[in-house]
Design a protein around this nucleic acid. Structure first.
Lengths: 237, 237
DNA sequence: CGTTTTGTTGACAACGTTCAACTCCTGTGG
DNA sequence: CCACAGGAGTTGAACGTTGTCAACAAAACG
């Protein structure tokens, strides 16, 4: 038994994730034998593109960025991971290593799950196969949505689409989109330069469609009109 | 037994596909009970985005395009499917319907596999789970590669990347990239206008890096130099 | 409180799209 | 077999959107 047993909190976190939602106590314990807990400071690189896949992860606390690199300096954010999400599950099965690189943007707490051991475990738990398939399928949808957004939407539409997708309906009586990202981070995710992102936000502010507070919280003032700006539909994730 | 038995050719096609590669005769026959053969003329729509997923497909002959639509008129090609490939397998598991639309670009011959029946079949054939996972995983890689290409490469690099990926190393002593597409089709796949695609091809012709024959066959004259134009690497699918 | 990082705004340039003209192919009917 | 029509491919010019560079403002941090 190479790893210390899981804490109660970690067990709960596993059971709250999509993959292991209905695991019973015993199954979680068996899973725990090849998970280890990691606490990493901001800017830690968890894995890099093309590297052989040794683990996949469940994020407990913090914030992780999945990104691509081209040439020496260009970086493109593919996705942000928030607590409760698993990532890099798909990398286990392709035999081509991780398709992206991953970096913690803030100090983060993770559960790293050993890929080899997990694939063995998988054979003994057929229902998990289904979960994984549906998980990956949903991720495929998301990526297709991103491709649509990249190729079909202009700067303003990208921003609006993102705001609408990520605003928390129930949060306050007002619709506040909490964006815990730096401008540069969000810009990279939307495939814009920081400058254009700023400009779009300014314009939307001028037109009274949004309000910003301390630059990381964005209040949506007129959701209907925002939706109209996306035309009929976004087809986005 | 709702469907006629499979012909020898269809059985072979199934066994040549990635998903069913090592199926034995009996397994293929059972699979055949919920496959049906389709022969469709060019421009047939096989399914459309968001539609509930009733079948997935193996392309036997012909040519199929997977695409997205935005608004009323914009179309973006996500992928071309060539004979031997399966497509839309992932749609079964997400519960969100097909993520894209599919249209036959030429007269095409397909095997349509009933999704419901297949998922039942899947439970009795655990090794298939693995196949599916690795298939979908590879597709995820591809999509990530496309995202990279869309966001990081310029027009010339997109074209070169595509040519290099799709040229047939062994075909003739010369490297001929057979592109059985219309300019407009290829342009949509690369997210360019037909015009820019033409311009890029012209430039490459002028610089003696490629040659075109009857506009659908492209001979790569200097692969090394083409590679250099992509910088260090493409990170593309 | 000053220093450093992040965000915002403007001027300008670049790349790609759009529109329009034109050429080249392909296939069809005379 | 040629002529012609229609579509596909190619090229040029003008335009627009977004990226880049540079200056500046505002926060964050020690």
């Amino acid at each position: 038994m190479p790893y210390p047993p899981l804490t109660a909190g970690q067990v709960q976190a596993l059971q709250r994730s999509a993959l292991f939602a209905d695991f019973n106590q015993e199954e979680v314990q068996r899973l725990g034998r090849f998970c280890h807990h990691e606490m990493v400071p901001a800017h830690t690189v968890l894995f890099i593109q093309r590297e052989a896949c040794s683990h996949f992860y469940l994020l407990l606390e913090g914030f992780v960025e999945l990104f691509l690199q081209h040439g020496e300096q260009q970086k493109k954010t593919v996705e942000f991971i928030e607590p409760g999400q698993t990532f890099a599950e798909a990398a286990m099965f392709s035999g081509q290593g991780y398709p992206v690189s991953a970096m913690a943007l803030r100090e983060s707490e993770l559960l790293a799950i050993n890929s080899m051991k997990f694939t063995q475990f998988l054979k003994q738990h057929p229902p998990l196969n289904w979960r994984l398939l549906s998980n990956m399928s949903r991720r495929l949808h998301q990526l297709v949505g991103q491709i649509a957004a990249l190729s079909v939407l202009n700067a303003e539409q990208k921003v609006i689409a993102y705001l609408l997708e990520h605003h928390n309906e129930e949060e306050m009586e007002e619709s506040v989109s909490h964006l815990p990202y730096r401008r540069a981070e969000l810009a990279s995710r939307l495939d814009l330069s920081t400058e254009t992102l700023c400009r779009v936000l300014s314009q939307l502010k001028k037109q009274q469609l949004i309000e910003t507070r301390q630059s990381s919280q964005i209040k949506l003032l007129d959701i209907k009109q925002l939706r109209e700006r996306l035309y009929g539909s976004t087809a986005s994730s």
